[in-house]
Design a protein around this nucleic acid. Structure first.
Lengths: 332, 332
DNA sequence: CTGTTAGCGCCTTCAT
DNA sequence: ATGAAGGCGCTAACAG
């Protein structure tokens, strides 16, 4: 079942069938006959042969840190939806935060001749991206700065997100805000921390760096950070967290400490993972729209692929505060 | 950068290079020279060309319901790990529990010429699997019975898992056990329900079907089912849930009701999703080893792929009770 | 053991 | 607008 059979049945040459499939110049009547033959034979082109000759695979790579981290599944799904809608397949690679695995992933991408790659991990290895850049494979990064030839970027306005959260808490009358940060080797986590300080300062509240306690973006880190916060006086009346898992850990520590959220302490997360809606109480958090991020990332790639001017593009994503039940008026 | 350049540099024919790559008979010395040339040129074979001629793509399909459902990420990861380790790529498809999307997924698999497919969705469309069967593409299912030509199955011993949970609760002195089921149109959920009844009966406890309340395998379903349970007297002293999300909903309803887990009511989940460890209190649950399921599924596929006798294989997976803090001795 | 040759299924000049 | 022919990079006979 190949292009020749279709050609025979439609009484044309294989070239004409090929042109019909690819929407090139074919007389309407001829095209119709070809399409009918295709229909009748339930023919579809052999992707391998196609990419062998065209040099384009219609496969895009997606490199993420860890698909079991609740941040990523939605991102992956959004990306795949966008890709499959345009007739692309996705080659997924988990780095597990490990550079060897990252290198393997890149190798697989190269072997399978991906047309473009989205790199949505937190940190990057320059030598690996160079391998891709060298072959002029368009890339898009998640918030790592520089747009360049073939390189696009999805920028996230963390400041805006953190500002909204701080604003929300200040409006509720909170003045003593603590912040549980992410791992300090994670750029996006550092940005969130300083955005917190900035937001406080801008609003004339003393943004004391000592109100920042270190977490690790996991539940246990949030738990321990919150436990350490309890050893200090005065206690904060509200706690902002660098991500939702951290906030969940904090919620747990607060409950273990015999206090109640939000009556005693307000808690705000960041990311809005699916679970945030179902914590006890439901978590007020800053939503990072992952479907949108994924969609824009794919768009950026598509743009680079279709464009002769090889410059990447930059899209900015704005997080949005989602108020649920873990925040309330400050009591004091 | 192709096989010819390597051949030239090594002073052999392309056929010899090909043989070296594929570990066929080549004189050691020659092979060494070829490998060195490969090394120096950083050559790797073009996958497309390879599969065009061999007819095998070294891509396996993985069809799941919804990657944002916490049950699946670990499964996907396990499967990809197993696959990439053997040099296969994974083509992932989300059905969203929708048969149109499922059909699209199968079409994509066919177009990309997958060598085999793992179908890990809850329910199946026979006409679609026939398309695959027709092309003699090996398949493996998650617990849907029949092993056949090219068709393998990963069987899950739900009865054992449910039994362990029931046993655990009975040992703790519980006699009034309720069960929150999954959606009745889901085979695996029905099996769990009847396994509950069987387990009770076997142990001489009245397994009253009215102690089964309907959930939907989501948090809200667990919440509402538990709320309905609270309208009845006598109250159960322990609740077993068809999956963890259901149990989380139940935990929440119990807390809202002013009762305490495990002091007032014990709760047991099923699946052991990552989150189960971090609920409040940490959830006692029956672990379904998803990495293992994924690994066995891929093994089954590999077996079918390498075997001339076309019969599929069956592996059985045994769930394992994980005792955490949501279960305690019955008070009465 | 190794080289030569003929495709795998498709797209793409180059003619017509 | 269409057809004929060559080749994408590789593997699988078939010779030697």
């Amino acid at each position: 079942m190949d292009i020749r059979e279709v050609a025979k049945r439609a009484g044309v040459s294989t070239a004409t069938v090929s042109r019909t499939i690819n929407n090139l110049k074919v007389r309407p009547g001829t095209a119709r006959r070809v399409r009918q033959a295709i229909e009748e034979l339930k023919y579809f082109p052999n992707t391998q042969a196609r990419s062998l000759v065209s040099g384009r695979s219609r496969i895009v790579g997606l490199i993420v840190s860890d698909i079991t981290n609740p941040f990523f599944p939605e991102l992956v799904k959004g990306f795949e939806d966008a890709a499959t809608q345009k007739g692309y397949e996705v080659l997924l690679s988990n780095t597990e935060y490990d550079s060897t695995r990252m290198a393997n992933g890149v190798r697989r991408m190269l072997e399978r001749k991906v047309d473009a790659v989205a790199i949505m991990t937190s940190e990057m290895d320059a030598s690996l991206t160079q391998q891709l850049a060298h072959r002029k494979i368009p890339m898009v990064f998640l918030d790592v700065g520089t747009v360049d030839n073939h390189i696009s970027n999805i920028k996230i306005d963390y400041s805006s997100g953190i500002s909204q959260a701080v604003e929300h808490l200040l409006e509720l009358g909170h003045r003593r805000l603590a912040f549980i940060s992410g791992p300090s080797d994670l750029a996006s986590a550092r940005i969130r921390s300083s955005a917190f300080l900035d937001a406080m300062r801008e609003r004339g509240v003393i943004g004391d760096p000592s109100w920042i306690e270190a977490g690790n973006h996991r539940i246990d880190g949030g738990f321990h950070a919150m436990s350490r916060i309890f050893e200090r006086r005065p206690l904060p009346t509200a706690v902002l967290s660098s991500n939702d898992l951290t906030a969940i850990g904090a919620l747990r520590a607060i409950r273990r400490h015999g206090l109640h959220v939000p009556d005693d302490i307000s808690v705000v997360g960041f990311d809005d993972i699916a679970l945030a809606e179902f914590t006890e109480p439901p978590l007020t958090t800053v939503r990072l729209p992952r479907q949108e991020i994924a969609g824009k990332a794919f768009d950026a790639l598509l743009t680079s692929l279709g464009d002769t001017s090889r410059m990447g593009v930059e899209y900015t994503i704005s997080p949005q505060l989602v108020v649920r039940e873990s925040t309330a008026k400050a009591r004091e």
